[in-house]
Design a protein around this nucleic acid. Structure first.
Ligand SMILES: NC(=O)c1ccc[n+]([C@@H]2O[C@H](COP(=O)([O-])OP(=O)(O)OC[C@H]3O[C@@H](n4cnc5c(N)ncnc54)[C@H](O)[C@@H]3O)[C@@H](O)[C@H]2O)c1
Ligand SMILES: NC(=O)c1ccc[n+]([C@@H]2O[C@H](COP(=O)([O-])OP(=O)(O)OC[C@H]3O[C@@H](n4cnc5c(N)ncnc54)[C@H](O)[C@@H]3O)[C@@H](O)[C@H]2O)c1
Lengths: 212, 212
DNA sequence: CTGTGAATGTGAATTTTGTAACAAAACCCC
DNA sequence: GGGGTTTTGTTACAAAATTCACATTCACAG
């Protein structure tokens, strides 16, 4: 099929598919049907086939999908069949947890630069990486070919951090701070806010209680 | 209006509205129109009115919404006008970052219990809280009236952690580990996976490059 | 080499979500 | 205190996403 606009929800689901397929692979399963994958992901099986159809034909009719092949295909479709260099701005509690998280490099997102404005933190080594002054962002973005910026500063500093990143020529920003920021339209911006998961939990739990 | 089923997307947007409204409040703005709020949240203004209509009537025609009142109303609608006691299982890098995060208690999610199975960690104090053996979960869930469980163990341990939590009588689970788990249908389960934001960024950046 | 069974890929039907349009309501000014 | 203005709440409409249904394709057996 190969279409233009891919729904946000499809991208999120593809991430789940990769996760579950990797588990299948670890278990030694070589081939999987959309039906079985669907069950493991708690989605509809035609949903899976439709999601995949945006990018091409990856299955074999009458057989199913070859697990390893499908993982590779999805990764290529998403553009994560290569490494992405990332820079992290704001090395506090969350920033440190992210820098120490092995999964990033395993998934192809290499944290190559760590930036902070606190003179006490600059020069410190975290996970083999030296914390650098945020003023050096423009130089470092070029030097390290950083493409994605991760903002883990306090919310009131997020806009400034974004400005630095944009000025330095970054291509996309993932903002973990709970504040809205503005960037030029050619910069891809993602907000990470997991409080809405807590809100959803609270809402549904209370609603369920209210039912009985 | 007061309807039954609320879209997931609505819950996520309500979280954004609260965030932006809080900023307005800090700036001293008392009244805001759906138009102005919409702009700040990058959504359509009828979207906002529709989202709110699921829960009731909170505005004043010809005037707009009183900022503080609206915050209160949304919070009540979501069920976060009271405190929720949470227990965290797996005090590693991420678990620690969460335990140290002030925003949780500010938003009404009180982290009251921290559990781990590593004997070297049990007894340690993090943010004034003692790390307790996960075997004590059932006792502690009752003692502390825990309602929401947070899983921050390695992925292969997530199911076991979930089993403990469910057995202990928890009502909802937020799973930060990248693995699917199964729980009885009366338990509300949310997955937190911020890699899909990275995937989306990678995908869109590469797509934009491919365009030119 | 043809028939059978299985599971994909896809167009059509359905459901859900989002947007536009407007009548009803509240405020304000004269 | 009535008319004009503004902005909500809601209905009607459009778009998008999901699910259904099935023709199509492939593997394999006989
Ligand atoms: N800690 C968590 O678990 C958690 C969870 C969700 C969201 N967040 C959000 O992530 C952000 C960081 O949280 P945290 O707990 O790590 O906070 P923190 O205070 O521990 O860390 C913030 C860091 O940013 C640095 N900083 C401030 N201004 C900067 C600037 N202009 N340029 C570069 N660095 C700057 C500070 O020096 C500090 O090291 C916050 O916005 C928080 O709301 C945190
Ligand atoms: N670190 C991050 O930034 C980050 C980001 C996203 C997701 N995650 C996910 O969050 C989880 C935790 O990550 P982390 O970096 O903190 O790992 P970690 O290894 O630092 O911490 C895991 C902790 O869980 C404990 N644990 C293991 N089995 C347990 C059990 N059965 N009961 C109770 N405790 C148990 C371990 O003793 C350890 O303290 C992982 O699944 C990871 O993929 C981490």
């Amino acid at each position: 099929m190969k279409s233009e606009h891919i729904p946000k929800a499809t991208i999120a689901r593809l991430a789940t598919y990769i996760q579950v397929l990797s588990e299948f692979k670890r278990e030694g399963t070589d081939v999987v049907s959309s039906e079985r994958l669907a069950e493991a992901c708690s989605v509809n099986s035609s949903q899976i086939r439709k999601d995949l159809a945006y990018f091409g034909e990856f299955g074999v009719r009458g057989v199913g999908y070859y697990v390893q092949d499908l993982i590779t295909s999805i990764k290529r479709s998403l553009g994560i069949d290569r490494a992405w260099n990332c820079g992290l701005v704001g090395v506090g509690n969350l920033g440190r947890a992210l820098l120490r998280h092995r999964e990033f490099s395993r998934k192809g997102f290499i944290l190559r630069g760590a930036f902070d404005c606190d003179p006490y933190k600059i020069g410190e080594i975290v996970e083999g990486m030296e914390i650098v002054c945020s003023r050096q962002l423009p130089a470092k973005v070029k030097e390290l070919s950083l493409e994605i910026g991760i903002i883990t500063t306090p919310p009131e500093r997020a806009q400034r951090a974004a400005n630095y990143l944009v000025g330095a020529g970054i291509k996309g920003i993932i903002n973990f701070a709970p504040s809205r920021i503005s960037v030029p339209s050619h910069i891809h911006l993602e907000y990470v806010d997991f409080f809405h998961h807590f809100y959803a939990a609270a809402f549904h739990i209370r609603f369920a209680e209210h039912q009985e």
